[in-house]
Design a protein around this nucleic acid. Structure first.
Lengths: 113, 113
DNA sequence: CCTCCTACCTAGGATAGCTATATAGTAAGC
DNA sequence: GCTTACTATATAGCTATCCTAGGTAGGAGG
């Protein structure tokens, strides 16, 4: 487990991409997303509920995700599972491209006199 | 020249890194930084003065940049040249490492079932 | 002079993630 | 039945940062 988490500002504008990446393969509910993000990044990503839920609502309002409540399979409160819509899949492609473009732009700044 | 500029939110938290990258090789003044960023990224980065100047002041207050006024060599108003301090160089290294780490974390989210 | 260009600066607004808390259902212990 | 703990979703208020939209001022050229 790594302790370091990213500067909060790095997430701005990238949280959408991150959520779409995680939900691309399979639908998940809120806390599951937080756990998955932690596991897959060795604890680097550690989203707070106060960041996650508004973001999920935002993406749902944009039509990129659709959420549906479902009873827990282990006896807890109901869970809201989010899955990517077709629109969300297209958005993911755009976000990936934008991320690549941004990275290339940063690199192109280096090594100049 | 490319028209597309990055989503404003992508810049949040990365503008510091960008400015340090640009100023690493040589000192520059405000508008020169804007022009250089445009040129080096084929117009992708197009910083507004309202973003740039507060950022420069912030970095100067943190001790990462030091600024000094200097008369223009082409007869305009005086220019404020910013150069990286030693502290700024160390900050640049940290920001680069953080950027790499963040990029790796994003990639590690992909291709999972 | 008067206009234009350069150059620096700032106030106010919008956005998005974080802190902290609220709400509620289920399960376990006594 | 009551309390405690865990899970799960939700949101109000804070803060940081970038952008919009201006302002100030010096020099060049007609």
């Amino acid at each position: 487990m790594e302790q370091l988490s990213p500067d909060a500002n790095l997430l701005k504008g990238n949280l959408d991409l991150i959520l779409l990446e995680i939900l691309e393969a399979q639908p998940m509910y809120g806390l599951e997303i937080i756990n998955e993000a932690q596991t897959r990044t060795d604890g680097y990503f550690d989203f707070k509920e106060g960041s996650l839920y508004p973001a999920l609502h935002r993406l749902e309002a944009q039509g990129w995700l659709s959420g549906a409540f479902q009873d827990s399979d282990s006896g807890g409160p109901r869970r809201k599972y989010y899955r990517l819509t077709d629109k969300g899949n297209r958005a993911l492609e755009r976000k990936r491209a934008e991320w690549q473009r941004f990275g290339r732009a940063i690199e192109s700044l280096r090594g100049r006199p």
